[in-house]
Design a protein around this nucleic acid. Structure first.
Length: 586
RNA sequence: GCGGUCGUCGUCUAGUUGGUUUAGGACACAAGCCUUCCAAGCUUGCGAUCCCGGGUUCGAAUCCCGGCGACCGCACCA
């Protein structure tokens, strides 16, 4: 019991409930696993974290932010491969009711490899189970029909349509499906990036670990599009000397967990990271976490093993942070998605999602041109002649020309095209450019996890008092305003100062209850960086004391200088000591 | 989903071999007094049908069953 008491996860959950950062949702109905409610302080903190993401990516890097819907037509996730990959085949024992992963059973008892089992349909699974006479490992009973457990939330769009919709398990697809419009808005230039911060849903089999694994959570997906032929990151020089703590897949396969502290430049040179942009965003992610309060040595990037990677990724790193209860937990994922997603949507929708690139110098090409002679095709194919002509146009002319040359005919579907049916000529054309599908690197942050690590790393105790030492731009409340004692003119003056600060745009709270020490303690626990105290001297010379949450030091400053100094303080331009003259403790 | 442990005021908890328990305390919170800088003190107040439902019993927070939820382990985490 005492051991769990000292556990930070327990302490933070307790504090979070008490002070209103977050708690389990639907408590009055017994609670629902995997859903949380962020309280007043938590909602503010979460907004501040999301604001930091926007500052870093949208304001500084010019990345476009969009907001798309959570409910997504089934077709989208069928095309993206999620419907196929986001489920697990399960079988249930008819006798004892135990459930098993069907692919695991096949692997163990029928020696069918995981890769093979993955591809099998439910009927194939059923046949394989029967053929190999697999029975329940626990009681020997036979299995019911295999079923898929889909970890996406499924719904019906509209009352009668029967059209399947899914709650998005990631925000990325909302970006890919809008690619054409976004590319136009980005003035048809690569590279460019699109960010989306929003809710995502995953029907986890067993959500655990509080904020770490939720069924409804906030994800920040950034899709960065670039030309694979010019994959260089023009911003690399800003970060190339930053160190990244990397645990490579190669090391992991050898059973090592040795972290390689390597500069961005060197990691690229040694080809540990396959894309410059990916390396760039990993460096940005490290910086973000430092700004959230997680020191560099408590972070690492772990490369995913081939079978751990998502279906769309060629190389993936998880950014992990060390936490008290569970060790390393993932806070962001960095995947090189190549052209996978756009290609899938292009094939499924039939809409061209390629971009056009002009060559520096146009290329002159001699091309075969195959032109159907309708006067010949008509009599042969009758009503289907037009269709045949269309089919011909859809295949490469070189292929047709070569086949006619070699065999004297060209077979397309059921139609046999003879030499006399077409005119084959060589034409000189000037090719000014080409169409291609951009490649994508994706940094993806779990905002609830960022929130949790921000809380855990802010959590400190001093003289048995809890202090949440948030970075000053993350604190839910910026300033507490306190009359030293509850005497009328002091309270009145304090209210005046409070109004002044609120009108200046600060989030400031007023508190005149209990002793001053109690109010300071309460403010420390809510992570309020500064306390402004109005005392008897204030009534004489219009100065107040400002108290620092972390050092408990105080400076004295004139009220008229306060707004400007505080603005400088919260934008990080000056430190606490520069706010005024230090007051010696009595 | 499985196995283990558990579920009492806002928070932490006492009580759990069934019976003076109208469920006790601490902290927090509110009002008042006091108070010239770090959870001081005093007074008063607010606050739990003991997670929900059913059962056993003269009697259930306490025993039994089911559900929900939490934590740990397994599995899962694309």
């Amino acid at each position: 019991m005492t051991e769990t008491k000292t556990d930070k996860f327990t302490l933070i959950n307790e504090l979070a409930r008490r002070r209103g950062f977050f708690w389990q949702a639907y408590e009055i109905y017994g609670g629902a696993g995997g859903f949380v409610t962020y309280g007043p302080l938590g909602a503010k903190l979460k907004q501040n974290i999301e604001r930091k993401l926007r500052e870093l990516f949208v304001n500084k890097l010019g990345i476009l932010e969009i907001e798309s819907s959570v409910i997504t037509p089934g077709k989208v996730f069928e095309a993206s491969g999620h419907v196929g990959h986001f489920k697990e085949p399960m079988v249930e024992c008819a006798k004892c009711g135990k459930r098993f992963r069907a692919d695991h059973l096949l692997e163990e008892y029928a020696k069918i490899s995981a890769a093979e089992a993955e591809k099998m349909s439910l009927t194939e699974i059923k046949q394989a189970i029967e053929k190999n006479a697999i029975t329940c490992p626990d009681c020997g009973g036979t299995f019911n029909e295999p079923q898929q457990f889909l970890t996406m939330f499924e719904t019906t769009i509209g009352p009668y349509s029967g059209a399947t919709g899914y709650g998005r398990p990631e925000a990325a697809q909302g970006i890919f499906v809008e690619f054409n419009r976004l590319y136009t808005i980005a003035r048809e230039r690569l590279p460019f990036g699109v960010l989306q911060i929003g809710h995502a849903l995953r029907n986890e089999i067993s959500p655990r670990q509080g904020l770490i694994r939720l069924r409804e959570f906030t994800i920040a997906d950034l899709e960065f599009f670039f030309d694979p032929e010019t994959p260089n990151c023009h911003l690399l020089k800003d970060v190339e000397n930053e160190t990244l703590p990397i645990l490579t897949a190669e090391k992991r396969l050898k059973g090592s967990d040795e972290i390689l502290n390597i500069t961005v430049k060197e990691a690229l040179k040694q080809k540990l990271i396959s894309s410059e942009w990916q390396a760039f965003f990993m460096a940005m992610a490290k910086k973000l976490l430092i700004e959230i309060g997680v020191p560099a040595e408590k972070q690492r990037f772990i490369e995913k093993l081939p079978w751990e990677k998502a279906h769309y990724s060629t190389q993936s790193f998880d950014q992990e942070v060390l936490v008290d209860r569970w060790g390393w937990i993932e806070v962001s994922g960095h995947a090189y998605r190549t052209d996978y997603d756009l290609k899938c949507h292009m094939e499924a929708s039939g809409v061209d999602l390629r971009v056009y690139k002009e060559y520096e110098t146009p290329i002159e090409e001699e091309q075969f041109v195959v032109k159907p002679i309708m006067a010949k095709l008509g009599p042969v194919f009758k009503a289907e002649a037009a269709k045949v002509a269309q089919l011909l146009a859809s295949v490469p002319a070189e292929e047709v020309a070569a086949a006619l040359e070699k065999h004297g005919y060209y077979q397309i579907q059921n139609y046999k095209i003879l030499r006399e049916h077409v005119n084959v000529s060589r034409q000189k054309t000037v090719v000014r450019g080409k169409r291609f599908i951009p490649h994508v690197v994706e940094p993806s942050f779990g905002c609830d996890r960022l929130f949790y690590v921000a809380l855990e790393y802010a959590y400190h105790t001093k003289d048995d008092r809890v202090i949440l030492s948030f970075p000053r731009d993350l604190a839910p409340t910026q300033i507490g305003v306190y009359p030293l004692v509850s005497k009328d003119d002091i309270v009145e003056k304090a209210e005046e100062v409070h109004r002044l600060l609120v009108n200046e745009g600060f989030s400031a709270e007023f508190d005149d209850t209990g002793s001053i020490g109690r109010r300071y303690a309460r403010a420390d626990e809510a992570g309020i960086p500064l306390g402004v105290t109005i005392d008897y001297d204030t009534l004489n010379d219009d100065t107040v004391t400002v108290r620092d949450r972390d050092s408990w030091q105080q400076v004295r400053v004139s009220i008229k200088d306060l707004p400007e100094l505080l603005h400088k303080y919260f934008s990080g331009k000056i430190n606490f000591e520069e706010l005024g003259t230090l007051v010696q403790a009595k």
